[in-house]
Design a protein around this nucleic acid. Structure first.
Lengths: 154, 154
DNA sequence: TTACATGCAAATGGTTTGCAACGCA
DNA sequence: TGCGTTGCAAACCATTTGCATGTAA
């Protein structure tokens, strides 16, 4: 499993960008290293123990800043709130419908992963979600024909 | 590419369940066949042309019913609203960051897909999201130890 | 005549924004 | 002194809910 960049490198990255390493920001980052895919609310709740006067605004803005820098990744599911994780390459998530935990799993061989997850690790896979993000051929061709209009398919 | 079940089969499925084939429901289903991964708002907006007095409530409840029956799949992204599609097996999505379109793509060979998407179809893949849903080994072992508490990881 | 559906309006709740106060560079 | 940062409160907005009305079997 790939590891996220270490915390010192993250703090260094912020300094490079001229961003201040406030106690609140350091604590949000620390919690991201300690927790498994927390929601903003979970980060806020735990921060409140050490910083009673911290605001949700600060937690949200810090998470947004880290996301914009590519340091954290936001995971959205069907439920209301997003989950956050430190960016790592080459991994997938296994979401347990029973306990709700989000597990990081290796994805060296994506094709066989679903099968191997079951036979070797005991995960029962009901559903796989695979999303690609990037630029489509039409847009890459310079068409810049982007529209928000609804298009038919099928 | 796998196709979704045809519309007559969907309507038959509702009848089997004792659900009424109201004009509103038939129109929502029809639009799901005509549109590419629409949001609830897009469905509502287009329905309003044919049914001026349709309510958002009906659109949302119909989409939820279809989702509960496994007929439609809900896709959540970082932006606010969910997108809906008729359920199909063995396919992935390519989300164009330039035009915003969501493309269905084949995923016969998930391992090589990212590479093939680029070399054979011209898609530039920046990011792949792969999510598994199911039951983890601990829960499958009958522990039913599910909690909503935050757990540490890494 | 009863259970299911619809639609209006209000509530919900995660997230964002406006703005004044704060504090490091 | 200036600008980035914080935090309170209000706004935002997709979605859900309460409830009265409508409708089909």
């Amino acid at each position: 499993m790939n590891e996220p960049m270490d915390m010192e490198a993250v703090l260094e990255r912020l300094k490079e960008k001229g961003l201040r390493l406030t106690p609140q920001r350091v604590e949000v980052i620390t919690l991201l290293y300690q927790l498994s895919h927390p929601t903003a609310e979970q980060v806020y709740s735990l921060m409140s123990k050490k910083f009673p006067y911290v605001s949700q605004t600060t937690v949200y803005s810090t998470l947004k800043m880290l996301k914009d820098l590519g340091i954290v990744n936001e995971l959205t599911y069907g439920d209301r709130s997003s989950h956050f994780e430190l960016t790592q390459e080459e991994h997938a998530h296994f979401n347990c419908k029973s306990c709700g935990e989000i597990y990081d799993v290796d994805v060296k061989d994506a094709r066989q992963l679903q099968h191997l997850l079951h036979t070797e690790q005991g995960y029962q896979v009901d559903f796989v979600r695979l999303e690609f993000y990037g630029t489509c051929p039409a847009c890459a061709a310079g068409g810049e024909a982007g529209t928000d209009s609804v298009r038919t398919a099928h």
